[in-house]
Design a protein around this nucleic acid. Structure first.
Lengths: 340, 340
DNA sequence: AACGTTTCGCGAAACGTTTCGGAAGTGGAA
DNA sequence: TTCCACTTCCGAAACGTTTCGCGAAACGTT
């Protein structure tokens, strides 16, 4: 139904090549006069170029692919995914690229997954989390297909990461400086790289400062407020509870705050809390959350830009690491006498 | 570099058509034996079908397009976009479709926009908000291109909406029932259809109950916490402030809560607040927000499903409207004596 | 007049598929 | 033997572009 370049050519009794050149100021020039005629007829026929046909031949779609974490049902709802995605989208807009989100991504079916990725619909891929997808990354590297991984071990593939170790260090040092010695940890799923790294940094800090690590002060959650609340109940509802808890992200810290309220534990006087992310709600909740800020929007934007650089074969920046910043608000204070 | 169907054919000295049939159990049968051989060689050559070439001929990409609100820089960050997108993504996954987010969408350049949309990269479109895009919708209708609009006037295009009128009615009736007579409104941008409809419903309620509408009790914001805070300061920081405020969404209500805290106005004893959405943080903030719940995930999922129905020419469901539910939490109470 | 150099334009190949028309062969029934 | 139906496979067209090679014409220089 829709008109094509051929229809224009026929109408004007000229060849399709000429039309193509006219339409996109193509690699060869066409005289002003016929150019105008082509443009007019194109408008008359309501012509729209078929970008798919074009991609087939140019091998570029101007679309960036995104692979959300596989448990995306939950994670896309979190501020992490949200802000990173926002960063990617904003940057993609500037770079005139669209963004395709791959919904199906079965890590057990590497072949099927690759079919999707390499089908030509996207020029490159951003992995929001590489958790469980190492074989896929491996094959992409092997095929030389442009990709960038976030929240991943710095390895063979290009990565954009946040300095978790440094961020956790700041958070812990803050708590330690206030006088806390009994510090618990709401840990993210340990297969998730950030979750793992933050836990490592936490353990490392505790060890280095000779603090006791009580296993029952460390509970896992999948980065959601609900999980945070459940996990927090396990940590807090016991006689020897810690005086402070470091949560692997803000969402879980929010759940923790709720749990504390339910248990009648007042924050920060009886319990200090530090989160990670500085999501918008950290400043909006009550009491306002002390947290480690990571520039999620910038991370997303950087990933998008790095990916396009790779696609267009510019400088080979292979990895980028962003810094963090401690934002001290109202959920941290000195532990009270009777606790320490 | 990558191997094609032709390579397989050459290797086996058979025709490409046979390979094609073998590969996708195609419309014609091929004997078991050659089928196996084709599959083996395909694996050997690490063959990946080129989906772009396939879409060119089948005219299907199995990708659903999404057009975020044009001021997406802000809106994608809100729970509205987030949950709707989540709903779409989940449903798309079930339906084996991927999702492409159009970043560029200049409402001034209808032609350019249409080029993007009709380029063949997507089989249909979901408009998150049709605000300002009527000409585009018009043309899509004219071309019979599958699309669904959210948060839009029920018109010629298929829509999925929420019953704003009913939702606002519940919120207002709740406040009225508690004894509030001086009720303000934190309004969303009025070009946004939901924002407009909620404001209409608010005004209508006030009129019907003979309540005074004070223009300085109505301030606009772009659905963000920051805007909510700014707008709330204007409403609250004056001698004749209302005893209750209905906010067009939860994010602004959250900003309102913050503003109230800054001004030393205690919620709910001195000020009642109702939001709209029931975003996760409504239950997590303090005091917990009374709000109108709308099933954002379901709305997104329904839109995706409706779109696919249209694409695949199944039943012609033209529009769907979801109901709301009032969730009473801790930000609403009777007005105190001295206020009324 | 002979010569390069541009300009202009056409035809065709290519991108990687899907799918149609039909040819050749096989087997069974009339 | 003839006819029909079925299987198996090939060649080619099609989808809508981009772009290369090449020829013809036009133009100015020697």
């Amino acid at each position: 139904m829709a008109s094509t370049i051929k229809d224009i050519a026929r109408r004007l009794n000229i060849s399709v090549s000429t039309v193509s050149y006219a339409l996109n100021g193509g690699p060869r020039s066409v005289p002003e006069e016929v150019r105008d005629k082509v443009l007019t007829v194109a408008r008359e026929l309501d012509y729209r170029p078929n970008r798919v046909a074009r991609s087939l031949i140019t091998r570029r779609s101007h679309v960036l692919g995104i692979i959300p974490h596989r448990s995306s049902r939950d994670l896309i709802l979190g501020p992490f995914m949200q802000h990173v995605l926002n960063g990617i989208l904003n940057e993609a807009e500037l770079m005139m690229q669209h963004v395709l989100i791959f919904t199906r991504c079965d890590e057990k079916d590497t072949a099927g997954t690759m079919d999707q990725f390499l089908g030509g619909h996207v020029d490159g891929l951003v992995f929001i989390s590489s958790d469980g997808l190492e074989p896929v990354l491996e094959e992409l590297r092997h095929r030389n297909f442009p990709h960038v991984a976030l929240s991943a071990r710095r390895g063979a593939s290009p990565t954009v990461t946040v300095d978790n170790v440094n961020g956790v260090e700041r958070a812990m040092a803050h708590l330690y400086g206030l006088g806390h010695r009994k510090i618990g940890h709401l840990r993210g799923i340990p297969t998730h790289y950030d979750g793992w790294e933050r836990h490592e940094a936490y353990s490392d800090f505790m060890r280095r400062h000779g603090l006791p690590i009580n296993p029952s002060w460390i509970v896992d959650g999948r980065f959601t407020p609900f999980d945070g609340r459940c996990a927090a109940l396990k940590i807090l509802d016991r006689p020897d509870r810690p005086t402070a808890v470091f949560a692997a992200n803000d969402e879980m810290a929010l759940g923790l705050l709720e749990a504390a309220r339910e248990l009648g534990i007042s924050v920060p006087s009886q319990l200090s809390v530090v989160g990670f992310d500085d999501s918008p709600h950290a400043a909006l909740c009550y009491p306002r959350l002390t947290t480690v800020r990571q520039p999620l929007n910038d991370i997303g934007a950087a990933a998008a830009r790095m990916l396009l650089d790779i696609i267009e074969e510019r400088d080979p920046v292979t990895s980028l690491r962003f810094g963090t910043e401690l934002v001290i608000r109202d959920t941290t204070a000195r532990p009270t006498e009777d606790q320490s």
